[in-house]
């Protein structure tokens, strides 16, 4: 298990927060919360050691295509493939746009 931190330039901070996925085999849990404007921070806890470069590449590719909102994203990864990670992140961002997806 290791904990990794990443930062990317971002746009505005959205309202609301979202939770997608879960810490099941080959899956991951993603918690998305509003962050400091202009900044996307990702905190990744993963069961796979030595995977920092893989995460970096994946995030770079994703956020190069489109500037992400300013968020604090926490990931609890249980051996998800890059495809699943991307799917979950996109799902999380989509839920944030659907207002009321996860409110208390």
């Amino acid at each position: 298990m290791e904990t990794l931190k990443f930062e990317f330039p971002a746009g505005q901070s959205p309202r609301g927060r979202a939770l997608v996925g879960g810490v099941g085999s080959g899956d991951l849990e993603v918690l998305l919360e509003p962050g400091e404007a202009g900044m996307l921070r990702l905190n990744v806890v993963t069961s796979v050691n030595g995977s920092a470069a893989r995460w970096q590449n994946l995030f770079e590719r994703m956020f190069r295509e489109q500037t992400p909102p300013a968020l604090n994203i926490e990931i609890h990864d249980f051996g998800a493939t890059p495809g699943v990670v991307r799917l979950r992140l996109e799902q999380g961002l989509e839920e944030l746009q659907l207002e009321g997806a996860f409110h208390d």
Binding site: M1, L19, G22, V23, E29, L31, V45, T46, S47, E74, H76, D77, F78
Partner: peptide, 10 residues
């Protein structure tokens, strides 16, 4: 769980 190297769920 973290003390045993196991990822937790929120």
């Amino acid at each position: 769980l973290p003390k045993q190297g196991i990822v937790t769920q929120a």
